[in-house]
Design a protein around this nucleic acid. Structure first.
Lengths: 224, 224
DNA sequence: CGCATAGTTCGATCCTCATCGAAGCATCCC
DNA sequence: GGGATGCTTCGATGAGGATCGAACTATGCG
């Protein structure tokens, strides 16, 4: 009967199906309104509201009010990481899917993780960036090499080295079981992928689907 | 209302205080009997038994029957990793402790994680082993260098390269936020630390407390 | 100001699930 | 076999919490 951190409290917040659905939706990285989340979770608005305030109390969400809209988002990368870990276990012990659907395959290849790219493509990209010595990796710490800033600037990605947010972070990938690139740079790269229309986000999942041409471009720029 | 892996199911298993206490106790790495876990969780034996069968159904535990004793243990490193992630979030958002007790400090320095050593000491050790090129690290994959087998053998640690279990694995540390060494080698090293009486396990927590002399020895052997 | 949209609070209902005592199995020891 | 120990199953109880409709608050638009 020791205490320590209240792990049951956090876990039980995630342990309700409605809340789990909401959190899962927020893993997409974009903040959502209460009504969107209610729809996502399949519950009424009052119910969703009650869940959201519980998640807020628990410190799992942040809230950004904009006029009459209130946007809920994950509180931070640590929360996202925890959710990925839980998803990983659920995948592992879960009832072996009869037949993994096409969406599962797509998710493995590339998906959104909070605000950056995850999946095989993302893991390969980080490997390659380290190989090319644009990023210097030591453990889970990733730093920019001197040549990186100009390199990324040439791609249209400006790196603000004064920002509070870490530019690079390693984020463990549940499907590949290795790390991919998170942090401001990771987010900027996902941004570029979408803006350049190399890929589009699947409407109903976190999957990121590359067009044939987009895939080529992405590989030329980041996997060459 | 998508589905995917049943994250709520897993999280709600951890979300009950009694079960959370049990899992937390099992993070110590040693398998425990139902009665011990009942005591740990502060519930009656029938209640504990019911919880344990739920955790088994959920795939979070393994069971080893030995005569009339039945030893429950965590199902694997992935489960342990998930629990560490949840603990990390709980630590972060949890009510800021008025004053971190001495035990918290001890936990940060060195503690048991499933079956190996975690905490500052463990992170430092992995760093050092990689620096000395006894271990070769690439991402989260860690391999033995050619010289490693004889080196560890000289320390009385025999490495069975034919074992099914991975010899080395990286395990993320919630307090330091970097990896430490898990896998068979990690377990063997923890073993040595205890057998050599360099440190003793705190009776009521996962903390591992080094004696002054033991600390010296440990640092001479692994951090030199 | 008045209406519409977004969201929260309240109250009542209902159901799941944690809990424990008692009884039932299983294993070991003598 | 018989008794003791370790554990599970059964049944009854009770509490917490998820849910929704209705009423209420807040913001924006014309």
């Amino acid at each position: 009967m020791r205490e320590g951190p209240d792990i049951a409290r956090i876990a039980s917040l995630v342990g309700d199906p409605a809340r789990a659905n909401m959190l899962n939706a927020l893993m997409g990285g974009t903040a959502l309104t209460a009504s969107e989340l209610a729809l996502e979770a399949g519950v009424s608005l009052p119910t969703a509201s009650s869940h959201l305030s519980k998640l807020m109390d628990g410190g799992l969400l942040t809230l950004a009010s904009q006029g009459r809209h209130r946007y809920y988002g994950l509180a931070g990368p640590q929360v996202a990481g925890m959710l990925e870990a839980i998803i990983g276990v659920a995948e592992a012990v879960g009832p072996k899917r009869v037949r993994p659907g096409p969406r599962d395959a797509a998710m493995r290849v590339a998906r959104v993780c909070y605000d950056h790219l995850a999946g095989e493509q993302a893991v390969a990209m980080l490997d390659r960036l380290v190989d090319r010595k644009l990023l210097l990796r030591q453990e889970n710490e990733i730093r920019l090499s001197p040549s990186a800033i100009s390199h990324f600037a040439a791609l249209g990605i400006e790196i603000d080295s004064k920002a509070k947010r870490p530019i690079c972070r390693a984020c463990l990938d549940w499907s590949v079981r290795r790390s991919h690139l998170a942090g401001a740079l990771g987010a900027a790269i996902l941004d570029k992928v979408i803006v350049e229309k190399w890929a589009r986000r699947d409407k109903d999942s976190r999957a990121v689907v590359f067009s044939p041409k987009g895939k080529q471009e992405f590989e030329r720029v980041f996997l060459a």
